[in-house]
Design a protein around this nucleic acid. Structure first.
Length: 168
DNA sequence: CCCTGATTCGC
DNA sequence: GCGAATCAGG
């Protein structure tokens, strides 16, 4: 791989965006982080704005509290004993965890951070900075950052999610 | 040990 | 100019 104008420009953009050298190397492909750092220095853009993505930026998962009953107990002045207690009815259903095997992201859909638009799924696959890292890129559910499949994962109830962490 | 960027130096 | 090896640091 050689440093074409295109790749240099991409390097400049990602570097100024605060991505780490290894992340950039993964996006570019065919180069190591050392190569990226070396190039950055040769280009003379060593210093840069504060890193916006210091380590592993994962997508924000919206709180499951978007139902109208968040403020279940309205502020009441006076006799609190008689205050109405509105019990939230919304019991988050024990949603099924999607079958990972069923999630096959077509190679054609996979994209880098630069390819993302409001209509491409922003779900990251793999570890950011690693060579096989990419974004889902599938068509999003309208108005959502993720495709139908990853929306189901992102909006899962909390208790279903944090089940891994026994490794190492 | 994972990661980060910085520097060196043979190619 | 390039980038692997190495270094210093978190």
């Amino acid at each position: 791989m050689n440093w074409t104008d295109e790749r240099v420009e991409l390097l400049k953009k990602l570097w100024s965006d605060g991505l780490s050298a290894s992340q950039i190397a993964a996006e570019l492909g065919g180069v190591t982080r050392n190569a990226v750092i070396g190039k950055v220095h040769r280009l003379g853009l060593s210093g840069r704005a504060k890193a916006l993505a210091p380590s592993a930026p994962r997508p924000r998962k919206p709180r499951p509290a978007s139902n109208g009953a968040v403020h279940a107990r309205p502020m009441v002045h006076g006799n609190t004993a008689l205050a109405p207690v509105i019990r939230p009815v919304i019991e988050p259903e024990p949603e099924e965890i999607p079958d990972p095997v069923a999630n096959v992201i077509p190679m054609a859909d996979r994209c880098t951070i630069l390819d993302l638009t409001e209509f491409t799924c922003r779900w990251p696959v793999g570890e950011p900075g690693k060579a096989d890292f990419f974004y889902c890129g599938s068509r999003t559910k309208t108005g959502l950052p993720y495709c139908a499949y990853h929306s189901r994962i992102a909006y899962q109830p909390v208790q279903n999610r944090d089940r891994r962490r026994a490794a190492r």
